[in-house]
Amino acid sequence: MASKGDLAAVLGDLRASSGGKELIGVDAARCAQALGVDGVAVSLPVTGEPGELVWSTPGTSARLEDLQYTLGQGPALETAAMCAPVIEPDLVHVAAGRWPALLPEAIGLGVGAVFCFPLLLGGACLGTLTLQRAAPGPLKEAEHTDAWLVAGALTAVLADGAQQWAASDAKGDSVLYRAAVHQAAGMVSVQAETTLAQALVRLRAYAFARGRPVVDVAEDVVARRVHFRKDQDGPGVSDR
């Protein structure tokens, strides 16, 4: 069972981080253990898009964020839109029409409960902190309080490191997890003679239909292994 010492250590590591690339060096698994969950993930909203994954435990949490990004629905998107937490202690009992594409996929991943908190900066939502557990059930009161403490620490780290993120992206060595998606969307837009928004929809649909993370498909597009053409047959796959 996690102790207050575990949480204090995680908060200390976060506060010692200057943001930017250093956040990736903070142990997300240790954070999950301190909060009594199986995994954590942090995403930063991008204007008009679901979010950019910047920190997570590997495996289920990262895959859940990928699914939300690919499908354009889920607790992180709701949290970012409302600037309010989304707490679902048992995904089996969530109304099917709420996240119709995401729910069966998330349950199939073994996610039983999700708890999503906004990273609030004034009246704005800087990002989202998503906790997930395999076993359904609510967070204990202390765990809920601790999650808000971590969310506050993450907000401070990301706000302090905002210039580092922007500088890395401007130099072309972006640490953003989905940098390839934005590059691929631009390529698809040219190949299929469509808008960037429509290009992103095609990328997501292609990835979902094949059960692949959209990031992987984007990397194939950038490497010119997948080519989207303007016709009625949808995207084609190049042998090059």
Rank of each mutant, 00 (worst) to 15 (best):
Ser56Glu: 04
Val54Cys: 00
Ala16Arg: 14
Arg63Gln: 12
Ala34Arg: 15
Leu53Cys: 02
Val26Trp: 11
Pro45Ala: 06
Ser17Arg: 11
Gly59Ile: 07
Ala28Tyr: 09
Ser43Leu: 04
Gly19Thr: 09
Ala62Asp: 11
Gly25Arg: 15
Pro58Phe: 03
Glu22Met: 10
Pro50Arg: 02
Glu65Tyr: 03
Ala16Val: 09
Leu35Asp: 12
Ala32Ile: 04
Glu49Asn: 11
Val54Glu: 00
Glu22Trp: 09
Leu67Asp: 08
Ser43Gln: 06
Ala28Arg: 05
Ala32Asn: 01
Ile24Gln: 15
Leu23Tyr: 04
Cys31His: 07
Gly51Glu: 06
Ala32Phe: 04
Ile24Asn: 13
Leu53Ser: 03
Ser17Asp: 10
Val26Cys: 14
Gly59Asp: 10
Gly25Ala: 12
Ala29Asn: 08
Ala29Lys: 06
Glu65Arg: 03
Ala62Ser: 14
Ser61Ile: 00
Leu44Lys: 02
Val54His: 01
Glu49His: 12
Ala29Ser: 13
Gly25Gln: 14
Leu35Phe: 14
Asp66Arg: 05
Gly25Ile: 09
Trp55Ser: 02
Thr47Val: 15
Ser61Glu: 03
Ser56Asn: 04
Lys21His: 12
Glu65Asp: 13
Ala41Leu: 10
Arg30Asp: 08
Ala28Glu: 09
Val37Cys: 13
Leu35Tyr: 15
Gly19Asn: 11
Gly59Tyr: 11
Gln33Thr: 12
Ala16Asn: 14
Leu67Ala: 09
Arg15Met: 13
Gly48Pro: 01
